[in-house]
Amino acid sequence: MATGNQTQDRQGLTLIAPPFLYAVLVMAAPLLTIVAYSFLKDGYLTVIREFTLENYRAVWADPIFHKIMLRSLGVAGLVTLVTVALAFPVAYFLSFVVDPRKKSMWLFLITIPFWTSYLIRVFLWKVILGYNGVVNSGLKSLGIIEQPLSFLLYNVNSMVMTLAHAYAPFAILPIYIALEKIDRSLLEAGRDLGESRAMTFWRVTLPLAMPGVVAASLIVFIPTIGDYVTPALIGGGKIPMIANMIQSQMLDQDNRPMGSALAVTAMLIVAAISLIFMAMNRRFLKVRQ
């Protein structure tokens, strides 16, 4: 059987070789370049090939970095919370209420926002929330306000709203899949053993849906931290997040080593938080159904 396994192994490796090479080329190589840059010295408009830890020292000592990193984490955390909290009822409805024959249609409807570019969707929020936007002109024509509200746009709230909307499908789908996997007789067993529907949800459905919730949280949290477009458009460029800071170092100030050090540091922080989050939920993640 050993030969058989070897043949199988070789077949498997051959099969994954092209995408693997592609991934190395377009993901690992740029990533390694960034890591390499972060240990090099910056000369004006050039990079000096000399090893240094100075960039990291500067990053950790920089109070602006602290502020922007904390803001990014705060916004991403808030977006994750809002998105998952709103996505769960949708996924629950989809899994438990919708007629099985209509589920694929509903899934299709949920993916419709993806038909429009992310940039355009973010821009549309600007149209909705803007000084002369849909909300303000609507309220004005109803006579509720006289002057347009200025607090709708260019702040953290509007960023959270935009990002939560943009990432909603990403959160709905993993939760939906986790809910679909739950054997319905488990819920009947919960009620048969004397629990109400609400308690059965708390004691059976939610724990079993947690792998989906964890996946949804990470899928929303990780890209949101590095989001560049929303802070630029909805935040008006006045409330930068970490991606904007990296961009400014890399391009505006042409300090590639510093920008790289920022990027690597942010990446490590996100990785650490994700690992801690998964460790906190490991009880739910190792459940085999």
């Binding site: 054997d183 007789s185 067993a189 059976v204 724990p207 079993l208 459940v287």
Partner: peptide, 8 residues
């Protein structure tokens, strides 16, 4: 029939 043992 499926025993409905809570897997978690």
């Amino acid at each position: 029939q499926s025993y409905a043992i809570f897997p978690h």
